[in-house]
Amino acid sequence: MREPMSLRWTRRVVLVVLGIFTLVPIYIMITSSLKPLKDVQGTFTWWPSTVTFQPFREMWKTIPLAHYFVNSLVVSTASSIASVVIALLAAYSLSRYRFRGRQAFSVTVLSTQMFPGILFLLPLFVIFVNISKVIGINLYGSRLGLTITFMTFTLPFAIWMLTGYLDSIPRALDEAAMVDGAGPLGALFRVVVPAAIPGIVAVAIYAFMTAWGEVLFASVMTDQSTRTLAVGLRGYVTQNDVYWNQIMAASLTVSIPIVAAFLLLQRFMVSGMTAGAVK
């Protein structure tokens, strides 16, 4: 079937315009990260006067970037893994059993996903302050505290996605394992989990990505020593001297692993989300 000429040209023009809109900020991020400082202090230039990798070396010294990096890595990994483990057990229960309260639990989990984060932030702040006063465990400003608050959005998402994923794994697999003498838990860990590895990995990575970019909780629940990248990068901007070339270099550096992960798993994400839509 041949396309009409007009359609082909409409497509080219529209896609090019959309492409420019999409790529200009990314182009600016990349080229500005290769500029010497004087290029970003005067009028904007489309190309560096000299291409330099200096910003990528200096960005670690201007702010404690490596420290923020470690904080982000620890908190995002912890909240991602904890969410997936807890969600996996819950998802197995929701996917394989019909019991009283199942519907109520699913609806609660699903609806908490839509609540604004600010609704949880104020009470969690008050609760953390009072916990440290009464029991002496300091959750406010600690990595543990931040991990817990991050789970307010990683956990419901993980439960939702994993339940959908386990639903797509045939029950015949568990039944075969049980015929062979495995209990339900044996079936879960020896048969279902191995079969669900792609889904589990994808959910874990996506939870990690959302935690990596979180700003609302991180801006309140951290202090100088536990600050994450998402909040720390803003620190460059409000200083008197703004090292835009270093900010762009740092932004690029913290983005590359996330973008790579996203592009790898976008196919899975879409099938998971639209399956939820079709049901």
Partner: peptide
């Protein structure tokens, strides 16, 4: 793939770029 990039980038990293783009003098 190119169209998906803005969604794949961490928000804080891409929005900070827009902040740079919107600076009055630079």
């Amino acid at each position: 793939t190119l169209f998906l990039l803005p969604f794949a980038l961490p928000i804080f990293a891409s929005v900070i770029t827009w902040n740079f783009m919107g600076q009055r003098d630079t």
